[in-house]
Amino acid sequence: MSAAAPQPRTKAGGLGIYAAAVFAFLYFPIVVLVIYSFNGAGVGGFPPRNLTLEWYRILFSDRAIWDAVLNSVIVALAAVMIALSLGLPAALALDRVSFPGKALFRRLVLLPLILPGIITGLSLLMFVRYTGQKLSLLTVILGHGTALISVATTELFAGLQKMDRAQEEASLDLGANYWQTFWRVTLPNLSLPLAAAGLLIFTLSMDEIAVTFFLIGRDNTLPLEIWGRLRRGMTPEINAISTLIFIFSVALILFWYHLRTRGQSSAEPLLAAEPESFQGKLR
């Protein structure tokens, strides 16, 4: 271990090698996955043989997969709507209203973020059954939307904390009422956190499986479609769709990162890029 000041690189050399090894560990499965999506001889074995695009061709003509993709997109968009439209008032309330049970409310909202998905999923399953509803994409949307309010709230609350309160005071001072102030000052000031939170929620919903597992009806989302196929036997077609999901995720992250860092001071660009929800300050 060596210290922070500029020092000869050799001092941190051992640590650097260790860090490189960790990176290798993190990326090894992903690299394997991508390579074998071109493997003509199945998902395993070594070395990969008969490199081919056949699996992608099969994938693109696989109706069930693309139906599932469509379902996932519908669910994710709806979840973004629900989570943002409730997470925004929740963040505002946490920021500026004091009411009895506020601390409890805060913890409750954030609970799905830290609780294992199975607990949230099963609770909602019981609730849905108890109210006599059928499981469908609607129940999945309800589950995703509700669980992801936590993400929306943390991200937007962080945005509110960074916002200059005098902005709203200035608006009221200039004669705008609360409603006008909300639309003309608060919301535009939060546009970046809103977009970033929306993107984050979209991605999390697209990938969600633990809560979905219990709330799914007849129409599968993409992760559950893949899950079902894994149990029936694996072909590199799954590698192919996984590779596409990977590329799609990376594209979204880059876009999200761009949103988060835009307009940030260069003093702490790294932390600015971190989802508040993942900083471990959930409680």
Binding site: F23, L26, Y27, F28, P29, I30, V32, L33, Y36, G42, V43, G44, G45, F46, T203, M206, D207, I209, P223, I226, W227, L230, M234, I238, N239, S242, I245, F246, S249, V250, L252, I253, Y257, A273, F278
Partner: peptide, 26 residues
């Protein structure tokens, strides 16, 4: 580079290990 794997689907990563560790795996 650390963030990227975080965002890669849970299922994709689990599946990747399955193809690596299996009896006829990588």
């Amino acid at each position: 580079l650390v963030i990227v794997p975080l965002w890669v689907s849970y299922l994709v990563r689990g599946y990747a290990w399955k193809t690596i560790l299996g009896g006829d795996g990588v």
